[in-house]
Amino acid sequence: MNGMQFLAGHFNYIVVIILMMTGLYIVISTGNMVKKLTGLGVFQTSVFQLYITMGKVTGGRPPIVAHAPEGAEHAAANGGEHGASTADTAVRMVHDMADVPVNGVIYSNPIPHVLILTGIVVGVATLAVGLALIVRIRETYDSIEEEDVEEAEYKARKAANA
């Protein structure tokens, strides 16, 4: 596993980490609230990219299983418990997965896709509430820069004490 092969295998992760850090940098360094939320969006999107690169299988196809299962028998009892405890189901699964993936066709892993669908929606929900707050902050302080807001607060406090 020399350097080149390692790089080929892990290049995606390195790029995703750089994007993540760019997003985090935007959030922390800027004083403007709209730019902060955009940075948050970039940060979350790059975390989703990390999940998805995990789930890709080489030569795999999107996890839409073709309808006719050519002959591969499915031992799964419909929906009920297997009865076997989680320990040995794990061993059985890892054992027989190496040879024939799902009826002869390799598919990518569906779990990261499910998690990321949830993540994207949570990201938009936070964005919407954040923007609503920015609108109200803009109405009360006439600016969405953190320095202006602190300044206005400082003046208000001084006026209150005086």
Partner: peptide, 12 residues
């Protein structure tokens, strides 16, 4: 490594 079918997430 990227695309590895036997990695923990893709094989379980």
């Amino acid at each position: 490594s990227f695309g590895d079918p036997l990695s923990a997430p893709n094989a379980y």
